[in-house]
Design a protein around this nucleic acid. Structure first.
Length: 375
RNA sequence: GCGGUUGUGGUGAAGUGGUUAACACAUCUGGCUGUGAACCAGACACUCGUCAGUUCGAUUCUGAUCAACCGCC
């Protein structure tokens, strides 16, 4: 177990598997379940650390692959690590780059040793192995590092997935051996696609290796929602109670609430920040596209139930105006809102869990959220 | 007053004697899930200044007319 890192489960909902707890890290304690904003290039796009704090953010993400390309992990290391480099005092988690190899690399060749591919910036050949990923992550110095995994597309055959899972397990083991930074937690990633036996197998094998936490990977890659819900259920059921569970890359309101109900503690997703930059907002009454003409003369807040800086001070008409003029302040305000919306939802979810009313909370939240339009 | 040039959607414009008038921007509507993304997809000219002529058929050719711009007196 990494020094200074532990999960303290305070309460489990009596009517579901939802759990409330405190995650202790070397950069502060954070409550779970939680939503973690994504800051791939050592910045949550458009937001300052102060604004993230105002939104109630705890852990934020950064990315191994991207930061190793620019500015390079050695520079971050020289700067004193990610926290100092980007002036973020809270806990940071780095993704390993496994997903990026899957989602944006050209010409990737997967071998037992690792993955060779052309990077997305200039097409230069790159090689990432489990050991190399750990080397980068240790230099970046986040509180939580992820294992280097293989993320398969959807769908693949059982046979293909079995081979992939076995490789991911061998890579997890190699990464664990290579990992020596004592004050950095390391998570294993459960793969296995939609196959129950493979999710079970992968989870159980990872647990034997005794990671500081476990992620569920290979979701939100184009599979139907009901398939994703099953994948999460399969994986979570074989994970230990006393370790954090992290559903990677999720997501939307309904998926997060489903994950919490199944016992997931941590979520991350680019969705709130990306769609905010494109004018789409999550509100208590559902989705709002701020670019729509109907908001031209709407002088009410985006979400009258939201306590964020944007909703407290600005109107839809103004936000639409900023969006139409492509003003960066608009993207910032909308990003603040979406981040705050999800974090606020998590705060309410935690309160509901403490009162054993999570199932009811989820039902009410979704009913209201889908009232106007689904998401 | 005379001579010339140009008139295509909200804008900048391409183009052709023959069933759907290129493209871009703007506008409108969707989408975005471990962020190569101020991105992607779709919609948008009852019609090519107006009137007449030639033609089986004209936005495309001809004439007149109107308008804008440029020269000259």
């Amino acid at each position: 177990m990494a020094k200074g890192f532990s999960l303290e489960i305070k309460h489990v909902d009596k009517n579901s598997k939802a759990r409330y707890g405190i995650l202790h890290t070397n950069h502060g304690d954070v409550e779970v379940p939680m939503f973690m904003p994504v800051g791939t290039l050592a910045t949550v796009k458009t937001l300052s650390p102060e604004e993230l704090k105002q939104c109630g953010a705890g852990v934020i993400l950064a990315n191994t692959y991207h930061l190793s390309l620019r500015p390079g992990e050695d520079i971050v290391n020289e700067a004193g690590g990610l926290h100092k480099f980007m002036n973020y005092p809270g806990p940071i988690l780095t993704d390993s780059g496994g997903f990026q190899v899957f989602s944006l690399a050209d010409n990737r060749q997967i071998t037992e040793e690792g993955v060779t591919f052309k990077n997305h910036l200039n097409g230069a050949k790159l090689f990432i192995s489990p050991e190399r990923a750990i080397e980068i992550e240790e230099k970046l110095g986040a509180d939580i590092a992820m294992s280097f995994d293989e993320c398969c597309p959807y769908p693949v055959t059982h046979e293909y997935m079995k081979n992939s899972v076995d490789r991911t397990l061998r890579w997890a083991k190699r990464g664990k051996i290579a990992h020596t930074k004592e004050d950095q937690a390391l998570f294993g990633i459960v793969q296995g696609g939609e196959f129950k036996d493979l999710r079970e197998y992968c989870a159980k094998e990872l647990v034997k290796m005794d990671f500081d936490g476990y992620s569920i990977g290979g979701t939100s890659i184009g599979e139907p929602k009901d398939v994703m819900y099953k994948m999460v259920g399969y994986a979570v059921s074989y994970l230990p109670e006393d370790k954090p569970r992290y559903l990677m890359g999720v997501g939307s309101v309904d998926e997060i609430l489903d994950g919490i109900e199944k016992g997931v503690d941590m979520f991350d997703c680019v969705l709130p920040t990306r769609i905010a930059r494109h004018g789409a907002l999550m509100t208590s009454k559902g989705r709002v596209n701020i670019r729509d003409k109907k908001y031209e003369r709407d002088f009410t807040p985006l979400d009258d139930e939201c306590d964020c800086y944007c909703c407290k001070n600005y109107t839809k008409a103004y936000l639409r105006h900023l969006y139409k003029c492509d003003e960066i302040f608009g993207k910032r305000l909308l990003s603040i809102h979406n981040i705050r919306f999800l974090i606020h939802m998590m705060e309410e979810a935690r309160e509901a869990i403490k009162e054993d009313s999570f199932v009811e909370f989820k039902r009410n939240f979704l009913n209201k959220f889908n009232d106007e339009r689904g998401f």
